[in-house]
Write a protein that binds this DNA or RNA. Structure first.
Lengths: 203, 203
DNA sequence: ACCTGAACACCGTTCAAGT
DNA sequence: ACCTGAACACCGTTCAAGT
C-alpha cells in the first residue's frame, strides 16, 4: 500500500499552527546537522517540544513531514525563478541566464546539507508526479525565456541547464564555498558555452 | 555509536561467495526496480534465496551491503576514468574531455535509478572520508590532464566539470534518454564552454 | 565453514484518556 | 480543538541449533 504523505488536518488554533511549525523546524534542523540517518519521530517530537501523538495529529507518517518541507522549498524555488525572470524581462540572453543562475544559487546554497539530504529523501517519497509537474513548470518558465532568444531544442536545453546549474551549485555547497559571485561566474561560463554553441548549431 | 559498514567476514568456500554475490545482486535489483523505501533485509534474503541469518554472517548491517555496492561502483568509475585517460594521452584538450565524458556516461547511464538511489543512500552512510578520497583520486587524474593543457585553477575546474557532467548525465538518465552520442555532444558543449573561457581568463 | 529461522530490540504509528 | 504517552506492529539484528 502506498505511504500516505498528505497532511492529516489543518491546524485551526494558533498554538496548533505553532506545533506544526515547530515540527517542521525541528526536522529541518536535524536534517541539516545530523542527516537522514539520525531522523526519527521521537527525535523530532523532543526537539519540537511536543509529544509524538501531536506530531501524528498533523502528519500521518514521517514521510509526510519530509514532503511538506520539500514542497515549501520547491515553492520558494519557483517563486525565486519567476521573480528573476520578471527582473530580466527584455534583457539579453546572457544577462537573463546570469539572473537565473543567481536566483538558483540564492535558493540552493543556504543550507547545502539540508538541500542534499532532501534530494536523498525524495528516493523514499512517491513524489514522481509532483517532481514531473515542477520540471514542467520550470521548463515552461525557463524554456519560454530561452525560446524568446532563439535557442533550439528548448526542452532538452532547459533540462540540461537546470541539471548543470544544480550539479555545480550542490558540489560547491558541499565543498563549503560561500563566494556566490565566483560560483555564478563559473556556472555562467558553462551555461553560456552550452547555449552559444546550441545557437550556432541552429545556424 | 557509529554504524558498522565493513564486511563481517570473507567467504571462504565457493557457495559462500555465491551467497554474498546473491545478496548484492538482490539488493541492486530491488533498488533499481523498487527504490530505497522498499529495501529491507527480509526482502533481500528472500530474493537472494538465503536466510537473514546468512546475510548477517557477511554483512553486519543493511548499510554494509549498500556500502559494498557503492564501493564496487566507485572502483568501476575510477577504472573507467583511468582507462579513458590512457586512451587520450597526447590528445587535444577537446578530444580528452570528450573521452572523459564518454567514459562517465558509460558508467553512469546503465542503471539510472540505481545510480540515483545509491547517491541517496550515501546520506545514511558514514562514507565522507571515502568520498573525499574518491574526489581526490579523480581530481588527481583529471586535474593532471587539465593542467597539462594549461587550464587555470585546476582544483575548482575539476570539481566543476565533474559536477556538471554528473548532473547532466543523471538528469538524462532519469528522463529515459538512451542516445549516448547526443548526450555526449551536449555535455561537451558545456564543458568546452567552461574550459575555453577558463583558458581565456588566464590570458 | 556455512546455513536456518525464531526471538529480541527499536522506532514508526495508534489510541484511550486528558485539558 | 488540541495534547499526552503507553501500547502495538514491523523490521533490523542476534543467537542457539543444525549440516
Amino acid at each position: 500500500m502506498p505511504v500516505s504523505i498528505e497532511p492529516r488536518k489543518r491546524p485551526r488554533q494558533a498554538r496548533a499552527a505553532a506545533t506544526v511549525e515547530a515540527i517542521l523546524e525541528a526536522t529541518a534542523h536535524i536534517l541539516e546537522r545530523e542527516g537522514l540517518g539520525a531522523l526519527n519521530t521521537n527525535n523530532i517530537a523532543v526537539r519540537a517540544g511536543v509529544s509524538v501523538g501531536s506530531l501524528y495529529q498533523y502528519f500521518p507518517t514521517k514521510q509526510a513531514i519530509l514532503t511538506e518541507i520539500i514542497r515549501r522549498k520547491r515553492r520558494r524555488l519557483v517563486d525565486g525563478i519567476e521573480r528573476a525572470l520578471r527582473a530580466v524581462d527584455g534583457a539579453t540572453l546572457a544577462d537573463g541566464v546570469d539572473g537565473l543562475i543567481a536566483a538558483t544559487i540564492e535558493h540552493q546554497i543556504a543550507w547545502p546539507r539540508l538541500a542534499r539530504t532532501l534530494e536523498a529523501a525524495e528516493a523514499f517519497l512517491p513524489l514522481e508526479r509532483e517532481t514531473e509537474a515542477l520540471k514542467q513548470s520550470l521548463a515552461a518558465h525557463i524554456g519560454g525565456f530561452l525560446a524568446e532568444h532563439g535557442i533550439a531544442d528548448v526542452e532538452v536545453a532547459t533540462q540540461d541547464l537546470i541539471a548543470l546549474v544544480r550539479g555545480m551549485i550542490d558540489a560547491a555547497g558541499l565543498a563549503g564555498e560561500t563566494d556566490r559571485a565566483f560560483l555564478a561566474r563559473r556556472i555562467g561560463r558553462a551555461a553560456r558555452g552550452y547555449l552559444m554553441r546550441s545557437q550556432a548549431d541552429t545556424v
